[in-house]
Design a protein around this nucleic acid. Structure first.
Lengths: 311, 311
DNA sequence: AATTTAATTGCGTAAAACGCTATATAGTGG
DNA sequence: CCACTATATAGCGTTTTACGCAATTAAATT
């Protein structure tokens, strides 16, 4: 008998509904079903009366529930006695782009769930550019974002990985491709004026891009301003023009065949991608624990963990 | 956390010796070692101080021991409350031949260990023919044996499988083989007198064999009387003569290449192989539970379970 | 009758546990 | 001092267990 099984039983005994318990417990319906079956097999008693429509506790089930409750409590007690904090529970609200959700956050959340199984993760996805403002406004606890040039003092930033910004062009035959082939994009004198650009509407990438254009004294022909790197990559893939995005997003887009990098000189800078959160909120053990797990997952040196990380 | 782990910990905390605990728990030393390591990992505390020479409880270890004891007791309590008898513990003494130990007993013991992990099995092997007398004398609780023609009323017999007795001859070129090839052994007039026989010293097989000889009016040329079917098969394999054994033993002997069956008419009877025990001892829940598991394992119909099974 | 909701089951896969064997290390006896 | 025993741990392949997905069953609802 193990506490995991007991927790499943207790949840089902509470909800009297396998589906709901399976969601609360973050496991599949079939796993819940089999766990209960194994349990009944092990105790040799039917604990939950169920037809295909409803679930009820049996007599032995009621007795067993008392036992299960006490046993789980005892376990939690001894853990707390040993100063174990993995009992943390509550909810953390995250904000990130679709790409970041599985290219950056996934490994973190996997480790986090193992260490703190009782914490619920509420994840919102959208344009990566909105991350900082959502954090500042307090709507989310932690965001995955590129590091802004000027980090507001209220914010903490934990750099996880770098990804170079790249100009992207469609691979297939199209007007854009033809123009590119008729010259050297690395040449300072290359004529960009006739090429339609698809640029970010706002955010760090927009800032870095504008800066680059200014430095090269290029006045780009803006075809579209788009929210979200993913959308930029998609539009470039459709042949609508040249875009900008971090390599990370391109790699994850599944459009690597339809899109290719455009070499330019000087190169575009790299985006420092990492976690972003209000310093104040980081004092909460809940938020802090996710922050720490992220640091461990990406092997961030301890001294960088809570600073603003100039770099 | 599961009770299995707790039991391992409690055992080690008692013995302060991994090796001894591994024996008591019927698991390998490495399994014990890793179980403790995992446990310490899970509770985040060193519970047992150990160097390569000795084991001691740490402070947290002592606390945890109290918790573990209570938790295991609670578990046993609820099981007993549900009328679960798998808490049985003690020792059962078995007697069987080497062959029977893994061809007959193994599947039974496997199921039994699962259902009653706390019961120790003491197994003695030797000539199958001695099984009945060892049971009658009370030396062992249960024996695997061929069913005797006359079953003493104090004995219960649970038939598990039949195995035909067979005459065996060496396969390779030898004097014995030559004689066999020069005639038809199925013929009533076949001359057996010059063939050396290797026969059982005592037991059911001897009785059945003697009967067959008498019915055929054959006066066999006895070369050797041997204790144990396995030894008979081995001697036949060495070319020393013709022997008798149940097919089961031949199959299990690993000498199927060196030994072949000798067709005779009429055929030798079959041995009914099964469990044998004193009726009185079967009243013990310990012995009875093994008996029952055997019946289930071999799909014995319930009405045959405790009778003498004429057949 | 078609659809929806809820639990079970078949099946392939992934994780956990195990055993065997090798290794490390400290006592023991000749 | 060296072989030898006893004890715990580590590497590695195998077995067992648990899980998720998808198909299925079955009742309730539209």
């Amino acid at each position: 008998m193990d506490t995991k099984t007991l927790r499943v039983f207790l949840s089902v005994a509470d909800t009297l509904n396998y589906s709901r318990s399976s969601e609360l417990l973050h496991m599949s319906l079939s796993a819940v079903s089999r766990t209960i079956q194994r349990l009944e097999e092990e105790v040799g008693q039917r604990l939950l009366e169920r037809d295909n429509r409803s679930v009820r506790l049996t007599g032995p089930g009621r007795e067993f529930r008392v036992y299960a409750q006490r046993t789980v409590e005892d376990w939690q007690l001894i853990r707390r006695q040993f100063g174990d904090e993995s009992q943390l529970s509550g909810e953390i609200s995250l904000y990130c782009s679709v790409t970041a959700s599985y290219r950056v956050l996934a490994p973190i959340l996997e480790a986090f769930r193992k260490a703190y199984p009782a914490v619920d993760i509420m994840m919102h996805t959208g344009d990566q550019a909105d991350g900082i403002s959502r954090i500042l406004s307090g709507r989310d606890d932690i965001a995955v974002s590129g590091r802004p040039l000027e980090l507001p003092p209220r914010l903490a930033f934990l750099p996880l990985q770098d990804s170079p910004l790249q100009f992207l062009a469609p691979t297939g035959d199209c007007a854009v491709r033809e123009i590119l082939n008729n010259g050297d994009t690395r040449d300072l004198n290359f004529d960009w004026s006739s090429i339609p650009f698809i640029v970010p509407e706002r955010g760090i990438t927009k800032v870095l891009l504008d800066e680059w254009f200014r430095a090269q004294s290029i006045k780009p022909n803006i075809y579209a301003q788009v929210a979200g790197h993913e959308a930029i990559v998609a539009m470039v893939g459709l042949g609508l023009g040249i875009g900008v995005a971090p390599e990370l997003v391109v790699d994850a887009s599944g459009m690597t065949g339809k899109v290719s990098y455009v070499p330019v000189a000087p190169k575009l800078p790299s985006l420092s991608i990492g976690l972003c959160g209000l310093r104040q909120r980081l004092e909460s053990p809940l938020v802090r624990s996710l922050w720490d797990v992220a640091g461990e997952t990406y092997h961030v040196p301890p001294d960088t963990m809570h600073g603003t990380s100039d770099g």
